[in-house]
Simulated assay, not measured.
Amino acid sequence: MRIEIDNVAKGYPRADGSRLSVVGNLSTAVEAQEFVCVIGPSGCGKSTLLGLLGGLRRPDSGEIRFVGERGADGPLTSIVWQDYALIPWRSIVDNVAFGLELRGVSARRRREVAREHLAMMGIEAFADAKPHELSGGMRQRAGIARALASDPEVLLMDEPFAAVDAQTRTLLQDELLQVWSRNRKTVLFITHSIEEALLLADRIIVLGPRPTRVVEEIRVPFPRPRDRDVELDPRFTELKRHLWAQLRDATLAAEWAEAKGER
């Protein structure tokens, strides 16, 4: 499923009656089965963009199009959040099955599918546990399993590994690469980590300060299947340095605008 973002703008009203422009006439595209990471300075509108793609918000102007043949049953998009967003009183298997329940899938079938996806994420043994009984990494694995269990055309991920420790983040990145290599969903992945973007993505979209627009799009040159050996490639260091310069300039521009009262 290809995503086309055509001149999209989004803003919010302020308390003083003015309007805060967050996304400003942004245009880009994500190809079918492509893994795209989005980076940009804090507060630039990355999560707002993801909400627009997920149908949680409507653009003020412009158009978002999903182009391609739709599956018979699955949703168009599923979202994996940074804070897990699991229902605390439900078991893990029932959390993963929740989207299927909303679609009217039988109890037996939705639990089968949920357990299959928990097994895929390596946490089937914790299917009957409650979210508070799991570590942060396990809860995020459950969140990914829930998103994939509905068989979406597009997987949207909003800094999904930001709340876990460094070791768990490394494991989750490796597991996500393995899962994506099997199902090849179209993925848009928001991150603050340049290293994470270079490890995961086919292409990186760099956003500028709000009202955010695309500053640059970079094709990641490392072949797939991909592992952490790419970090030893001299091009990894060169791209990391280049992307950091872009982020630094965008962050300084945002701070300067805020200091002048333009934000």
Rank of each mutant, 00 (worst) to 15 (best):
residue 75 P to W: 13
residue 188 L to G: 07
residue 131 P to L: 00
residue 53 L to V: 04
residue 262 E to P: 00
residue 243 L to T: 14
residue 98 F to R: 07
residue 72 A to V: 09
residue 179 V to Q: 08
residue 81 W to T: 09
residue 130 K to G: 02
residue 38 V to K: 01
residue 237 T to F: 06
residue 191 T to I: 14
residue 230 V to I: 15
residue 62 G to R: 03
residue 198 L to A: 04
residue 115 R to D: 05
residue 226 R to D: 04
residue 165 D to K: 10
residue 112 E to G: 06
residue 100 L to F: 01
residue 153 E to L: 12
residue 152 P to F: 10
residue 40 G to L: 14
residue 77 T to K: 13
residue 185 K to G: 06
residue 206 V to N: 02
residue 251 T to R: 15
residue 228 R to C: 03
residue 250 A to W: 07
residue 260 K to D: 09
residue 86 L to M: 10
residue 212 T to M: 03
residue 192 H to I: 04
residue 222 F to L: 10
residue 71 G to V: 00
residue 180 W to G: 00
residue 53 L to S: 07
residue 96 V to Q: 06
residue 217 E to W: 04
residue 260 K to V: 03
residue 23 V to H: 07
residue 36 V to I: 12
residue 175 E to N: 00
residue 203 R to Q: 00
residue 92 I to Y: 10
residue 11 G to C: 11
residue 213 R to Y: 01
residue 136 G to Y: 02
residue 211 P to M: 03
residue 178 Q to R: 14
residue 58 R to A: 08
residue 1 M to P: 08
residue 176 L to D: 03
residue 91 S to N: 09
residue 246 Q to A: 05
residue 189 F to H: 07
residue 79 I to G: 07
residue 96 V to F: 11
residue 177 L to I: 04
residue 64 I to S: 02
residue 233 D to T: 09
residue 256 W to I: 03
residue 156 L to S: 13
residue 55 G to D: 07
residue 199 L to I: 13
residue 49 L to A: 09
residue 10 K to A: 01
residue 162 A to R: 05
residue 148 L to V: 13
residue 120 M to Y: 01
residue 228 R to Q: 09
residue 134 L to V: 00
residue 253 A to L: 14
residue 72 A to S: 07
residue 42 S to D: 05
residue 220 V to Q: 01
residue 34 E to K: 15
residue 91 S to F: 04
residue 88 P to E: 11
residue 143 G to C: 09
residue 204 I to W: 01
residue 125 A to F: 01
residue 103 R to K: 14
residue 149 A to W: 08
residue 92 I to S: 07
residue 161 F to L: 08
residue 223 P to S: 03
residue 48 T to Y: 01
residue 88 P to R: 13
residue 17 G to H: 09
residue 124 E to D: 15
residue 69 E to V: 13
residue 68 G to A: 06
residue 184 R to M: 12
residue 96 V to I: 08
residue 223 P to E: 06
residue 163 A to C: 09
residue 242 H to Q: 12
residue 25 N to V: 04
residue 15 A to S: 12
residue 78 S to L: 05
residue 52 L to G: 05
residue 62 G to S: 01
residue 225 P to I: 10
residue 204 I to K: 05
residue 209 P to V: 00
residue 167 Q to R: 14
residue 169 R to P: 04
residue 219 R to D: 08
residue 56 L to T: 12
residue 208 G to P: 02
residue 123 I to K: 00
residue 39 I to C: 15
residue 55 G to I: 09
residue 38 V to Y: 04
residue 132 H to L: 01
residue 115 R to H: 06
residue 81 W to K: 11
residue 113 V to F: 04
residue 157 M to L: 14
residue 50 L to S: 05
residue 237 T to A: 15
residue 204 I to V: 14
residue 203 R to L: 00
residue 193 S to A: 15
residue 38 V to C: 05
residue 166 A to S: 13
residue 28 T to V: 02
residue 246 Q to C: 11
residue 114 A to H: 06
residue 106 S to H: 12
residue 89 W to D: 13
residue 201 A to W: 02
residue 159 E to G: 10
residue 253 A to G: 13
residue 87 I to H: 10
residue 9 A to R: 15
residue 91 S to T: 15
residue 200 L to F: 03
residue 71 G to Q: 04
residue 52 L to A: 08
residue 41 P to E: 14
residue 20 L to R: 11
residue 139 R to P: 00
residue 139 R to V: 03
residue 165 D to P: 12
residue 184 R to N: 12
